[in-house]
């Protein structure tokens, strides 16, 4: 089963709605609650990264018998230094975004901790692609 969601950059009030929709679908499939919570963390962080940093993006979710595979692709400024971006505490978020409690530099580390496979690629000036897999 494949579902695609649009994510709008800067739209904090709708931020998290794609993740919430996937979570509800997974619950209907009777996926173990612990797994659903891990997937929710991964999707939320990935979705909010697009909201906080990019212009717009898509989240494509593939639910397979063996696990969930998600690709989040955005058009945006991209990431200059991926190793740096993966470091806990590092963030390029604006002050405005930080005041809302985002930009703590924990988003990508949270994704890494909660998924089984993660592939992050980016072209500065164009956008970012994040591919993640969580096995059931």
């Amino acid at each position: 089963m494949r579902i695609e969601y649009h994510i709008e950059g800067g739209d904090f009030s709708s931020g998290g709605s794609a993740s919430s929709a996937v979570r509800k679908t997974l619950k209907q499939f009777n996926i173990a609650p612990l797994l659903v919570r891990r997937i929710a963390v991964v999707l939320y962080e990935a979705e909010m990264n697009v909201v906080a940093h990019a212009y717009h993006g898509t989240m494509t979710v593939d639910i397979r018998p063996t696990g969930i595979h998600v690709v989040i692709e955005d058009s945006g400024p991209g990431i200059e230094d991926i190793d740096k971006a993966m470091e806990e505490g590092f963030s390029t978020a604006t002050d405005e975004v930080r005041q809302m409690g985002f930009g703590a530099g924990m988003g990508l580390p949270n994704i890494r901790k909660n998924c089984d496979e993660m592939k992050l690629t980016s072209t500065p000036g164009e956008g970012t692609r994040l591919e993640i897999q969580v096995n059931f």
Binding site: V41, Y44, E45, M48, M100, G101, F102, A104, G105, M106, G107, P109, N110, K113
Partner: peptide, 9 residues
């Protein structure tokens, strides 16, 4: 906490 990712993690 007031940091959303801290709560998520």
């Amino acid at each position: 906490s007031d940091l959303l990712s801290d709560v998520m993690g």
